[in-house]
Nucleic acid binder design. Structure first.
Lengths: 147, 147
DNA sequence: ACTATTTGATATGGTCCATAACAATTATCG
DNA sequence: CGATAATTGTTATGGACCATATCAAATAGT
């Protein structure tokens, strides 16, 4: 039985590899921290978008999150079945569904935001250092936007 | 038809969200840059590990990459069917398969490394700035390791 | 020698992502 | 106006990736 660690080679110097590894860790921690309200990162992002963009339909919400419309249907079904949001028929266009947060949805989102801040992001900031957090976020945003 | 952009709200300030978005972009660009040798990020990481750790078996390679043994079987099948690596019976333990790079595998890896460096990483470094790249990599590695 | 463990493998199910197609509705424009 | 095109939500479907249980062969442990 060989107990020796394997050499990562040039993987340690690959931004993409380290980026993916970090992302998996962060999402895993997010799930643990937000477990009390039972929201995935994707569901959390949907609730935030609904809160900040009232009166929008499914397509608009989905596409701004990079979710394809067909895949957004089941996501909304899950949130709506838990009473966190509602589909309403638009009076101006009877094809589209306007998605709105319910009171329960707003309350859940508030709890989730608090959990994310106090448990998840706080620990993350402490890890990388307060003085580096904004630079990190800025670089990641640049990559996400302009790469 | 509303042409207005939606507000991202507190998503813009969420490290996890931006991290994921950046990761998707980076992997997408990796695929484009490495398309001439037809390797996914995961396959590339396997080849690198094989090159740096001769004489190891499937389980050791897979687990260091965070790949579960059952899922590694098909991955190796694909690489082996392309003649990039080979499974050899270990003389010391006839249960395990030692995985080795073939000459073609080494050549392909060399081409891939060159493509990654000159097209992929170079552009990424240029985007975030040479002076920031190491700090970025270091923070991501810290998150991946200690979070 | 008998049991427990390990290794590669198969089967299977879940989640996420992507495309095609469809009915209902609305927009286009001849 | 009316025929055609485009849009919206939806379903169906398939692929990629991830996780668990299980198995036969081989080895380790006692």
């Amino acid at each position: 039985m060989e107990g020796t660690e394997l050499a990562m080679g040039e993987l340690s110097d690959l931004l993409g590899y380290t980026l993916k590894r970090a992302q998996l860790r962060v999402f895993d921690d997010f799930l643990r921290c937000v477990a009390p309200v039972n929201l995935t990162p994707a569901q959390f992002s949907v609730l935030i978008l609904l809160d900040n963009n009232p009166g929008r339909n499914q397509t608009e919400i989905a596409t701004t999150l990079g979710i394809l419309r067909p895949n957004f249907v089941a996501m909304l079904d899950a949130l709506e079945s838990r009473g966190l949001c509602e589909r309403q028929r638009s009076p101006s266009d009877r094809r589209s569904h306007i998605v709105v947060l319910t009171d329960k949805g707003r309350a859940t989102l508030a709890r989730a935001k608090k959990l994310v801040q106090t448990r998840h992001e706080a620990r993350l900031i402490e890890l990388v250092g307060v003085e580096n957090r904004d630079a990190l976020l800025s670089m990641l945003a640049t990559i996400a936007r302009d790469f």
